[in-house]
Design a protein around this nucleic acid. Sequence first.
DNA 1: TGTACATCAGTGAACGCGCGTTCACTGATGTAC
DNA 2: TGTACATCAGTGAACGCGCGTTCACTGATGTAC
Lengths: 195, 195
Amino acid sequence: MVRYGKEHKQATRQRIIETAGRRFKRDGIDGSGVATLMKDAGLTNGAFYAHFESKEDLVATAVSEQLRGQREWLTSFEPGRAGIEAMVHTYLSPEHRDNPEDGCPSAALLDELSRCADPTKQAYTDSVLGIIDDIAARLSPHDPQSARVTVLSIYALMVGTLQLSRTLVDRQLADDVLEQGIRNALAVLDAASAS
Amino acid sequence: MVRYGKEHKQATRQRIIETAGRRFKRDGIDGSGVATLMKDAGLTNGAFYAHFESKEDLVATAVSEQLRGQREWLTSFEPGRAGIEAMVHTYLSPEHRDNPEDGCPSAALLDELSRCADPTKQAYTDSVLGIIDDIAARLSPHDPQSARVTVLSIYALMVGTLQLSRTLVDRQLADDVLEQGIRNALAVLDAASAS
DNA sequence: TGTACATCAGTGAACGCGCGTTCACTGATGTAC
DNA sequence: TGTACATCAGTGAACGCGCGTTCACTGATGTAC
């Protein structure tokens, strides 16, 4: 076994976190075993507990990391109405629906997360508020606090819409739901901006 | 063992379906084992396969049954705007959020269902369209077909909002998200009615 | 420069447990005589 | 009315398997001398 410098273990840990995040979004939390998660990262099961206290610890860490990635994705759109519109279109696209492993962790895992222990839900809450406050600040620089709930509620709308579109087997209907979701998200946004 | 008439086995099957529906909504699908599901119904694990082909078969059946129950609940509200408003308030209430086992199967299970096999997703799709078309017919008797996507998208909005409220550990924020969700749902409804 | 050693990331077998599923069996029943 | 029997819903032990977790061990490393 090659021995690397001090940054090596951190890099391994990061690799586990990232591949696990994708696996969780694809197969669910309960659907992803520790041995599989480690194999994804090119390791064996035994090394897991050198990096994490427990599977629950990895779940909290991986979900936070996924949300950090989503935050970067969200802030890659230009500020203002046009950017938000582009973001909503990309979020509620057939491509996002059909590739959950590359997509939003909330859409893939929210109801499993709601059944997790409090520390995991706390990690989710902190990370998602990081995203939401970021967007709120860009959307409403003078009153980000009141925009927080608006942005959260639009996020919830998009999450539910993507989940429903993923579960309906009627493809045409699933597409229609995405398109209607886009209209609804923008209508809610405009209603909030007007007030 | 007491032997009953022909209706007895059907009654047992129905009891399994109903207790399993509640258990799934509380602990998730992967989080509910067959032995536990049978114990909930006052039986032992061995009897399961006299009633269902597989766990997946029960999942599809129980989810359909839960949605049938939700359909009855939804149609218990008076038709028209006032009834819809009352329904939205009840759906997006702290009581519903805090008692998933009594509540909406979509809010509890939608992302787990999105990872199920096609027959299960088909059962979900059929049942949810039963609800949606019912509501659409009451909301827009002259054009229920075009109301279908509108109602589905409002359903998705409510599902996502309830899930998010269940996962945020900040209680005040979770309550605020529910209230904003109510406003959003009604705004989307009014926008659809106006056009 | 060469050798002995402490370090420590990762290995892989094993732990007890619960999973979904199968099956030989039980025992109260309604029916046949 | 009384007895023998076929039915069949439900029992409970067992199957192989994967789960999360533990641990004695490996072996390449940088360091000490």
